[in-house]
């Protein structure tokens, strides 16, 4: 098994990269994720496997990652700080590496209040910044979070983090990104971009500080099925900005789904051609995985590069 992450190789080669997202099921059958993985196989370079997204209990991201890997795609394991303390985190990470996972995305995680176990106790022993830093130390300094040496076979993960240009305080968002890069983040996936203007401002600040030279930034995009979905995100998802024009455009469309896809494809093209410093896109087709191949193809990102 190669030690090198394919995602890292594509990104390091300077090619515009494509990642997608697969949400594990709320049951114990892997059929659905295998199907999604096989379908996307040739169209993306790697795919995120969410970790109990929105705090709803789902198949473990690492277990689902194994199915995805076996179906031919390289997984990016998401790890939230909500459900595990530092002991469980490291143990899961060692296990994930042994199973062939090479990419980890570190995040805080949605608060359990939003999920199906709102009365659960959250952990937050470690925060996402600290997780990034300590994962890097595991790899580069061969030590556990406590400082004790890892005698052999330290996990050599390609470390990812998230950035949300749409959360507040806006001015601090680039600082925090820089902090994550200093901590050890090698690639960044952003929150879904709908407000292109704000994203451009964000990227301008990123470039001013030369952060795009130090980390690979993948811009998050999400195709929307209907104006209702857009308006829901606009009003109910914290840290998300959806401009009114976008909602209107979907509302006035004859075929909203088609329109949603077209918008997404336009966004990808715009980001790729107009915004400097972006190294790829991260397509989050939430519960709409089957449209990913079409989006990739129509955005002119097909075929994907081959790496060994």
């Amino acid at each position: 098994m190669s030690n090198l992450s394919k995602l890292q190789q594509v990104l390091d080669s300077g090619q515009f990269t494509v990642t997608a997202e697969i949400g594990p099921p709320k049951h114990s059958s892997a059929e659905g994720i295998r199907h999604h993985a096989e379908m996307m196989q040739d169209y993306v370079d790697a795919t995120n496997i969410t970790d109990n997204q929105t705090a709803i209990v789902r198949m473990s991201s690492i277990a689902a990652g194994v199915h995805v890997l076996n179906s031919g795609i390289e997984p990016i394991i998401q790890m939230t700080c909500r459900d595990r303390n530092r002991i469980a985190m490291q143990s899961d990470l060692l296990g994930a590496y042994s199973l062939g996972m090479r990419n980890v995305l570190c995040l805080s995680g949605d608060h359990q209040k939003f999920g199906n176990h709102p009365t659960a106790k959250n952990v937050y022993d470690v925060d996402s910044m600290q997780l990034i830093e300590n994962l890097r130390r595991m790899r580069d300094e061969k030590v556990f979070f406590c400082g004790e040496a890892i005698k052999e076979a330290e996990p050599q993960f390609f470390i990812g983090a998230v950035a949300n240009p749409f959360a507040d305080p806006f001015e601090f968002r680039v600082d925090r990104l820089e902090k994550k890069v200093n901590a050890g983040a090698q690639f960044i996936q952003t929150q879904c971009i709908f407000d292109m203007e704000r994203f451009e401002r964000f990227m301008e600040m990123v470039r001013e500080r030369g952060l795009d030279q130090r980390v690979h930034i993948l811009a998050g995009v999400t195709p929307m099925k209907s104006w209702r979905a857009a308006s829901y995100m606009q009003n109910n998802v914290s840290g998300m900005i959806v401009p009114d024009e976008l909602v209107e455009r979907l509302k006035n469309a004859e075929d909203p789904k088609r329109e949603g896809l077209d918008i997404c494809i336009e966004q990808i093209k715009y980001i790729k051609e107009k915004i400097k410093g972006v190294h790829g896109v991260h397509i989050m087709a939430i519960a709409w995985e089957e449209v990913v191949p079409e989006i990739v193809e129509k955005s002119g990102l097909y075929p994907r590069p081959k790496v060994d």
Partner: peptide, 21 residues
């Protein structure tokens, strides 16, 4: 902080309010 984050704010912070409420 609803997540006891020591290196915040998380991506849920908007208009000065926490994502939980």
């Amino acid at each position: 902080c609803s997540k006891s984050i020591l290196n915040g704010p998380c991506g849920g912070s908007q208009h000065g309010k926490c994502e939980v409420d």
